[in-house]
């Protein structure tokens, strides 16, 4: 939400326009990135040193966690993209469920969001329901789906979809509703039909908000994916690996799973940001 609202530098041509200014900005950005990585590196080093010095079984040093994660999941044959059997059996099903759940939530959220946001009346009527649905802590829904679907993939998918759909829906509705009124007049004068209005006006107008919603939904999908796999009755998945390792007091694996989840969350979010930057581009001032 915060970064899409920033109008691009190129939207204001020839203001200070000097190449020197751009170079200075680039070097400042590089310094910032360097600093961030330095902080991360120092944090990991301190963690490593402290864990080694302490020698606790509960807090293994990060080097050992990474090593263990590698052995567990990423030391497989080339033909399987280095994935081990364990990774294929547990990580891939989890990612599949998460992807399916997130995709369903995104499609449903955007479609319903546009429909709700297009009509002032529908928005006014639906808004309280939506706010309520969003306010329910998503994991609390899981027991409901356990009762309806029993344990297994349908229950897990339903949990992900019903948690992740709200942020997309609400943000899409809000974004659609805030379509510039003058552009609605323009669309009327140009006699754009319903499909053209959707593709050329409403969706592009709402796109920054849609992505804000998608990012929230993505992290909710990850949370619900793991959470729904923590329950008894699951046979595979990252969450299952976690509970399984915990029951065997295999803390190294527990830590490796946590590391994996953090890395996954980061990578997925970065991927989504890249798509967003591609689609929205720079310098969309005058968009709102």
């Amino acid at each position: 939400m915060s970064r899409v609202a920033v109008p691009g530098v190129s939207g204001v041509p020839d203001v200070s326009g000097a190449a020197g200014g751009r170079r200075a900005a680039a070097s400042a950005a590089a310094r910032g990135a360097l600093l961030r990585w330095a902080v991360l590196a120092v944090a990991v080093l301190v963690w490593e040193a402290a864990a080694r010095a302490h020698g606790s079984v509960y807090f293994p040093p990060p080097g050992r966690i990474v090593r263990h994660a590698y052995d567990l999941w990423f030391s497989g044959p080339v033909a399987h993209a280095f994935l081990t059997a364990d990774a294929v059996d547990n990580i891939l099903p989890s990612l599949g469920r998460m992807a399916a759940g997130f995709a369903l939530a995104a499609v449903a959220g955007i479609a319903l969001g546009v429909a709700v946001g297009r009509s002032r009346r529908a928005y006014a009527l639906c808004n309280p329901v939506l706010q309520f649905a969003r306010a329910v802590p998503p994991p609390a829904l899981v027991p409901v789906f356990v009762v309806i679907f029993d344990f297994g993939t349908p229950m897990q998918l339903a949990s992900i979809v019903f948690s992740a759909v709200w942020p997309v829906l609400i943000n899409t509705a809000e974004g659609t509703r805030n379509t510039e009124p003058l552009r609605l007049d323009v669309a009327a004068v140009l006699r754009l039909n319903a499909a053209e209005r959707l593709w050329l006006l409403f969706l592009p107008s709402a796109l920054p908000r849609i992505f804000a919603g998608l990012r929230l939904s993505l992290s909710l999908s990850l949370i619900l994916m793991v959470f729904s796999e923590l329950l008894p009755g699951t046979a595979d998945g990252i969450g299952y690996t976690l509970t399984d390792a915990q029951s065997r007091s295999d803390l190294l694996t527990v830590w490796a799973v946590l590391l994996l989840l953090g890395a996954l969350g980061y990578l997925l979010n970065t991927g989504l940001l890249t798509v967003e930057r591609r689609l929205i581009g720079r310098g969309r001032e005058g968009t709102r």
């Binding site: 003058l182 552009r183 007049d185 323009v186 006006l201 969309r284 001032e285 005058g286």
Partner: peptide, 17 residues
């Protein structure tokens, strides 16, 4: 056969096109 030009060009054009 009607066309309209509005004062606020910034908001009347579609910036994503």
């Amino acid at each position: 056969g009607l066309a309209v030009v509005f004062q606020d060009y910034g908001r009347s054009l579609f910036p994503w096109l």
